[in-house]
Design a protein around this nucleic acid. Structure first.
Length: 151
DNA sequence: GCCAACGTTGGC
DNA sequence: GCCAACGTTGGC
């Protein structure tokens, strides 16, 4: 099993919303690296749910991949802000997975906390901040879970 | 709201 | 295929 991190602006889609929806398709990813990360996901993989673009950016919860990568329907929807006129149905450019609500972290783990933790030095979140769907190593996963249990 | 980082686009 | 210009993300 692999671990991941899903970044979202809570104004656009929050962990609370996922709790209400239970499952959501992770639409709108328009970055090749993030897309490739989703293609590498397998059903059952767990991810951190991360809230960005707020005063205290932080990981707030855990979610689970419940459907392997499949074409993101919003790329074909002219009404959608994610519409991509260059993508064709026979050969879709953009993929998404379905993620399911699992549970909140005991305490949110802020970006500042993660930066302050030397063992997380190599974390993609700290190195390539802009990538919206990221791999997390098993070691990093455990360390962040540990931080979530502190205060 | 600013702006650094960095991904993408397009001219050559 | 390089790289300058441009656009976007996201922390602060």
């Amino acid at each position: 099993m692999h671990h991941w991190l899903f970044k979202t602006e809570p104004h656009a889609y929050s962990f609370e919303q996922l709790r209400a929806d239970r499952i959501t398709p992770w639409t709108g990813v328009r970055n090749w690296q993030a897309r490739n990360n989703m293609k590498a996901m397998e059903v059952g993989d767990l991810g951190f749910f991360y809230h960005s673009s707020i005063a205290q950016p932080c990981a707030v919860g855990i979610c689970r991949v419940v459907k392997n990568a499949y074409p993101d329907f919003t790329q074909f929807d002219v009404q959608s802000e994610y519409y991509d006129a260059t993508s064709r149905k026979e050969r879709p450019k953009w993929y998404m997975v379905d993620v399911e609500y699992v549970e909140p972290l005991e305490h949110p783990v802020t970006l500042a906390q993660m930066r302050a933790e030397p063992r997380l030095d190599g974390m993609v979140l700290l190195r390539r901040g802009r990538l919206s769907v990221q791999p997390v190593t098993s070691r990093e996963w455990e360390i962040v879970l540990g931080l979530a249990q502190q205060q």
